[in-house]
């Protein structure tokens, strides 16, 4: 997994509540056997019409808005537990999703795939939307070490929560196996202290 470094990026605003994983990645795309390529189908039915033509009114087809941060309305990632939703968001190029509430399973899946879900208050979410709509180039600064997200234009900041283990995984670019292997010498020490060898 790649290391999560402090991110300074403009945002893609999606002020819609209850975005479910069927919208994020429709079920018909779940048959693939690898994890790659899901980004092309992220929000497929919102992005493209029946003839596979981009829908001009959808924010991801609007060149005004771009960036590595997706900002969405309350209860993002609800519905089916498919991990593909996190893969699609990651594969498309988002490193961070901000909302005022996340569905639990989506949150876990996102963290396991190197995408940071940041839960902010309704009030702070409104501020982000307001600053983005006022100035689409306005940037957010996400500092994972300090657990803060800051609106650069106004210098308003919010401190978010994250599980310490998940935080360390993201900062170090570890997944579970990398994390355990980073304790390899402790594992080897431990093996020497077994009451007797079971092998």
């Amino acid at each position: 997994m790649k290391k999560f470094e402090t991110l300074n990026s403009s945002v893609v605003p999606l002020p819609i509540e209850n975005i479910d994983t069927d919208q994020i990645i429709p079920a018909r795309f779940l048959k693939a056997t690898t994890r790659e390529g899901f980004g092309d189908n992220l929000f497929r039915d919102w992005r493209f019409d029946g003839d596979n033509q981009p829908k001009a009114d959808f924010v991801m087809n609007d060149a005004t808005y771009a960036g590595k941060i997706l900002v969405a309305g309350k209860n993002f990632g609800c519905g089916s537990s498919r991990e593909h939703a996190a893969w699609a968001i990651q594969d498309y190029g988002f490193d961070v999703v901000i909302s005022s509430f996340f569905a639990d399973i989506f949150k876990g899946n996102a963290l396991n795939n190197g995408v940071l879900p940041i839960q902010v208050t309704e009030e702070f979410l409104e501020k982000i939307f307001a600053s983005t709509f006022k100035n689409p180039e306005s940037k957010l600064v996400v500092d994972l070490e300090a657990q803060t997200v800051t609106i650069q234009d106004t210098n308003e900041s919010f401190t978010f929560e994250i599980n310490p283990y998940k935080k360390s995984c993201l900062i170090n670019g570890y997944d579970d196996i990398d994390y355990i292997l980073s304790h390899r010498s402790e594992i080897e020490e431990f093996e020497k202290t077994r009451p007797y060898s079971y092998v």
Binding site: N163, P164, Y165, S168, I180, H183, E186, I187, F190, E191, P195, Y198
Partner: peptide
Amino acid sequence: DAHVVKRQEGFPDILYIDT
């Protein structure tokens, strides 16, 4: 407890597996 390689607040245990 006899199999915990590392225990840290906020982290899951790293549990050693014999077999």
